[in-house]
Amino acid sequence: MSNNIQLHKNDLPDDLNLGNIIAVDGEFMGLNVKRDPLCLIQLSSGNSDAHIIQLDRESYRAPNLVKLLNDENITKIFHYGRADIAHIKYYLRTETNNILDTKIASKLARSYSDNHSLKTLIKEFINIDISKQFQSSDFGGNLNPAQLKYCANDVIYLHKIHDKLVNILIREKRMQLYEDCLKFMKTRVDLDLALFRDDVWSH
Rank of each mutant, 00 (worst) to 15 (best):
L40D: 07
L40V: 00
S44C: 07
N47E: 02
S48I: 04
S48Q: 08
A50D: 07
A50C: 10
I53R: 09
L55C: 05
L55P: 02
L55W: 04
R61Y: 11
R61C: 11
P63G: 03
P63K: 07
P63N: 04
N64P: 00
L65T: 09
K76F: 12
F78S: 04
F78K: 01
D84L: 03
A86N: 10
H87L: 11
I88S: 05
R93V: 03
T94F: 11
T94P: 08
E95L: 04
T96W: 03
T96N: 10
N97V: 08
N97H: 10
N97E: 10
N98M: 10
L100S: 06
D101M: 12
K103C: 08
I104M: 07
K107A: 02
L108S: 10
L108Y: 14
R110D: 12
Y112V: 06
S113Q: 13
D114S: 13
D114W: 09
N115V: 04
S117P: 00
F125S: 12
N127R: 15
I128E: 15
I128Q: 15
I128M: 11
S131M: 07
K132N: 14
Q133S: 14
Q133G: 02
G140E: 06
N142E: 13
N144A: 00
Q147S: 06
L148E: 11
K149D: 12
K149Q: 08
K149V: 05
Y150M: 04
C151F: 01
D154L: 03
D154I: 02
H159K: 05
K160Q: 15
H162S: 10
I168R: 09
I168K: 12
I170G: 01
K173N: 14
R174L: 14
M175C: 07
Q176W: 12
Q176M: 13
E179H: 12
E179G: 00
